[in-house]
Amino acid sequence: MKCAGAAPLLGSRPGELDPVEDALLSAHLSTCDGCRARQADQEAVARVLEDGLLLEAARRDFTGFADGVLARIPASAWRGAAPTGPMERLREFLRRHRILAVASALAPALAALALYLYIGQTTGPGPSELAIEVTSEDLAAVVLETSDGPVILVGEGSDGT
């Protein structure tokens, strides 16, 4: 096997090469420094690619993204419990105001007093509890729930600080 034949085999994952390809590649790599080095380069490019794209994504301000998605889903798509008991009605009320709280981060001049509340639901039995409360005077607060735990951010105030 020459280098030109080995090249497309570089960067394969376990199980992707058939036994013949596997054997030929191993044999070639054991004697060819150049192809071993090329393989390392290929892996390096792969890592940088993922890093770079995730970095771009981390830089971007995602305010309004989820709102934009949900705004395009018709209300009729949401089946399930209509607000009934007091807990449900409060949740519905606060859900609308969370949208307001996020919107006020975009229009700081309009936010006189921003109050953001998030109600989480415990997964165990028993009545649901308040998991997170955030009060923010004059700043819009946003809570993101991740699998590692919550992330609480605050936005700009109306005086631009």
Binding site: T135, E137, L139, D148, V151, G157
Partner: peptide, 24 residues
């Protein structure tokens, strides 16, 4: 400094990450 107060309940092992100053 960010005029924010929060009360957060988490399970052990989870981490709270909270912004405590407005961006400057």
């Amino acid at each position: 400094a960010s005029r924010t107060q929060s009360r957060v309940t988490v399970a052990p092992g989870k981490r709270i990450v909270q912004q405590v100053t407005a961006e400057r």
